[in-house]
Design a protein around this nucleic acid. Sequence first.
DNA 1: TGCACACTTGAGCATCTATTCAGGAGTTAC
DNA 2: GTAACTCCTGAATAGATGCTCAAGTGTGCA
Lengths: 135, 135
Amino acid sequence: MDAVTGLDACTTREPDDARVAATREHLVTPDEASRLADQFRLLGDPTRAQILYALLEAGELCVCDLATVVEVSDTAVSHALRLLRAARIVASRRAGRMIYYRLADAHVRMLLDLSREHLRHGTTGDREERRAGHA
Amino acid sequence: MDAVTGLDACTTREPDDARVAATREHLVTPDEASRLADQFRLLGDPTRAQILYALLEAGELCVCDLATVVEVSDTAVSHALRLLRAARIVASRRAGRMIYYRLADAHVRMLLDLSREHLRHGTTGDREERRAGHA
DNA sequence: TGCACACTTGAGCATCTATTCAGGAGTTAC
DNA sequence: GTAACTCCTGAATAGATGCTCAAGTGTGCA
């Protein structure tokens, strides 16, 4: 299994041992990758995305208003918020019989804003890696 | 359906019309939300996340090396890369019989880096919204 | 020309997910 | 107390997803 000595994995041939070893050195662990994927996956649903962007705009909204804005049932919103709350992506505050939700931290806001700008302004501030036109 | 006049959606009562209308004004469209969700969803799988972070570290890797690093079959990697390529999250370059993949643009790198730092350093540079301790 | 290699593609399948429906919990007002 | 209201929860179902297996494409080498 040692990547440096080169006796491993690929279906048929040995991989580029040095490069594999170097990459593995600083790579996120499977556990970290799994947690990162969990975070991204929660943003990866149209309903939840709309909820989050609505909160990004409004600051905070109750379940009822969120359901109106996003145009889905309040039950669906509640289920969505349950997942987002468990992942600490949103936070809540009770005011009477209403419960107001908001984005939990600046990180989420940055992520949402960054992605929205990327979507809207062509393909964001990259434009590198474009010299040769490969697939 | 007009949010300003307040004759709509919530299961039983009328929502906070002004707030709903104001939010809708600058909100991402359902179509935009859907495309944003598509992007996030592609990052929301442990295998794809590991692939992307491996590319973030290594710069570029062939399918074979990616399979070794991530410890999944080369077929699974290929399927994952197919989706990432279609979404222009990764780009490819052929060199002989190998095909090297890399992250397609700076935006993706920023997104991955931002999220990894957030995961590792507690809950990133937020720490606001923490005064009262609600759910 | 033929074979081996690196990668891709398609089908099949087990698993996960997002919604709806029905009912419950907590809050306010009477 | 009862009633109305906002939101939450659990079960059920239709649809999406990611893997494996088997076969196909394109490249390099003898």
